[in-house]
Design a protein around this nucleic acid. Sequence first.
DNA 1: AAAAAAG
Length: 619
Amino acid sequence: MMKTSLLRQAAASRVALVARPAQVAFRASSAALALSRPSRNVAAVYRFTPSLLRLYSSESAAEQLSTDAAPGPISRFEDLSRLNVHEHIVRAITQDMKYETMTDVQTMTIRPALLGKDVVAQAKTGTGKTLAFLVPVIQRIIDADPDLARPSRGRKSCDNIRAIVMSPTRELAEQIGVEARRLCKGTGVIVQTAVGGTQKNMMLRKTRIEGCHLMVATPGRLHDLLSDPSSGIAAPNLAALVLDEADRMLEVGFKLELENILTLLPDRSSVPRQTLLYSATLPKNVVGVARQFINPTNFEFVQTVKADEVPTHERVPQFIVPCRGFENVAPTLLELIRREGSSAGQPIKAIVFLPTTAAVITYSRMFRSLRYDDRSIPRVYEIHSRLAQGQRSRSADEFRQASSAILFSSDVSARGMDFPNVTHVIQMHLPRDRDTYIHRIGRTGRAGKEGKAYLLAADIEIPAARSRLPGLPIQRCTDLESASIDVSKASTLPETFIQIQQASDKVGYELKQEAYRAFLVGAFSEVDTRELVTECNNMAKYTWGMEEPPAVSPSTARLVGVSAGLRIADIPAPRKPHGGSYGGGSYGGGGDRRDDFERMERVAQSESRRGGRKPPATF
DNA sequence: AAAAAAG
């Protein structure tokens, strides 16, 4: 009897595993939702482990099965009380944040995480992963020290941090910190944020006065604090470690730093520690690397994206605009922004991604100058690592608040950033890889909202775009006039070209020179180098208004690999932002193999097999 | 080498 009921619950839970972001869910009726989210989109990878079954059996089955469409496990935030989540946390979610219904990833991970299991979770962008890991982490801090259920006035300590959340970028860490603080309102749990580019001494003073139970950090600053005994910051009883954007954090470049940090944390064999790994993308490298982070006897692997399902949202249409040459790309952007801003009837709030920092600076200056003469262009913001941290935070905050604006961005904001109501994500030139493309377009269409994604790429980039972006529903968009004009033949250029050229006058020579160099070196490895030089020269001439191609140094010319078409001269070496000692790493293997590991392996293998066999690009 | 992440 019990067994049948559990099976029915399992079946019911599968029915409910529908992409259903919270904000849509409580506005639309459940009938409408059932219609709008057909069951073939259901992504059900869910295992009933013994511990979970025990928990299910201890609950009222009748309550969970009140209707056929009953959501099975906890699916409403108010029901978290039944899992003994503190009322202050539940209230923060349901009353302050105004969320009612959980998303799949929240339904599927909060309970096992509350039980102390390790979790590896993949869920689409904008489906509430942050809340999914913060709730159990904060609750377990309270479980371990019930005094923290309410604000305490006792002595504050910063040498007994209970949980650490790590993020690959500073703004994302700040954003997670803000959300964590909202959740902790009314409790005694103290959240601190530790990121680079901020005043360490200020942060330390604040942390010593206020204390710290949950630290949200970027790797460099965290390592700095933990390795410095005089900081007073310590985590001898660390109970939880979260890697947000886990696949990114485990990439070469971050992984070594991560391992250094691990050596500064208590050994898991003496201090049991829960590890939570979350991301929208889960390439196979995570599987090999996750092995050394995860407890193989007590962990849950949750995917709300099926292995063969497109990891982007159906409601966000994706377009590629083939541009005749590099010189057509910026005018096409201008035309697109004008068109989408007026025709759609709603003001445009767009993020424009570019492959290099120099290009981000160049184009944000150009569009700021355009806006000076044409107020129909929305306000322009920029964000990239060469900005002072105060500026970066200000850009992010102001863009967050804006109802209409354009944010020119490097990949700092490709992942995790939650800017509300972004209407368009526009990528100029190729994204570095498929996952970057997926995370970038994930800045729109969040929490059930609509959005559009455009990729502006020159004709010579299209073959590389096809090979980098297989298996994605990208359609060709050919109705932008600026994209197809042949500037060498046209007797009169469209207005967009004229305006872009005028705006280029406001950009300094050195910056254009630097952007030119950055375009040439490295970012388009699949593109024939001689053709790339021709394209960059055309861009310099026709859209940046330069009489002749900017000079490059002999060493740059060597890097490019050809000299034809380049103007080589002895110029100062390109400036390098201060370099750290981030380096490569290697991962070891071995260890136990349990069911979830095997499943992760299978997913990884099928993923790598599909690597060559993903449905070919359709554009 | 192209982003990022400590000063």
